[in-house]
Design a protein around this nucleic acid. Structure first.
Length: 194
DNA sequence: TGCAAACCATAAC
DNA sequence: GTTATGGTTTGCA
């Protein structure tokens, strides 16, 4: 049985689908129906599910984490994600994406160089990201620092990035799967829209 | 700038 | 098996 928890926090809806304490999928949005539909659409198999509006203590920590990320605040990012049913390449891309630190962005192409494959393949995985916003696919942009796309709309992507501004001014390298991944201050993106 | 071609894992037939 | 499809990138005029 998959348990779906849906809760409104400060006028935004957040949802997680849990199975045996693992997160199967998550979502957020401005209205209840869309948010729930997103979660349901991401369920990997035709399993029975139940929707709850009173979160358990465990579900509440997960929902609070979503809210923190949404607010651009530092959050505990090591929630247990159920990825076993996903293709191997998707797992690598999602994992690499989750390593992008708060306050930084990187490119579709940069991720593809780190984990293999091509930029468009990375974009496809992002488009199907089941773990929004836990896996911060909003931190992945085009190589010219324009936004690229976003499942919940470019406006939302911009707002998320705006809240993640931390005043960094230099790019840096992080380690992903033993390779280097270059990340850039989110300011590089934001200044395109000033 | 703008356009065309190369790119590459998935999902859908 | 094959094809269509992108949340892309790069090169070249």
């Amino acid at each position: 049985m998959i348990e779906i928890y849906l809760q409104n926090i400060d006028d935004t809806w957040f949802a997680v689908a849990l199975k045996e304490q693992q997160i199967v999928t998550s979502s957020f949005g401005t209205d209840q129906k869309t948010t729930l539909c997103n979660v349901l659409g991401n369920l990997p198999f035709n399993a029975p599910f139940q929707v709850f509006h009173e979160p358990t203590a465990y579900a509440k920590t997960a929902l609070d984490t979503l809210k923190c990320i949404y607010d651009g605040k530092t959050a505990n990012t090591n929630l247990p994600l159920a990825t076993s049913h996903l293709p191997a390449y998707s797992k690598k891309v999602l994992k690499a994406t989750s390593e992008i630190p708060l306050g930084y962005v990187t490119f579709y192409g940069a991720i593809s160089k780190a984990v293999g494959g091509g930029p468009r393949a990375v974009g496809n995985i992002m488009a199907g990201n089941p773990f929004a916003p836990i896996v911060p696919c909003h931190r992945v942009v085009k190589a010219d620092f324009t936004l690229g796309g976003y499942g919940f709309g470019l406006k939302v992507k911009m707002q998320l990035l705006g809240r993640e501004k931390r005043g960094f001014s230099n790019s840096k390298e992080i380690q992903v799967e033993g390779r280097q991944l270059k990340v850039y201050p989110v300011e590089y993106v934001l200044r395109n829209f000033a």
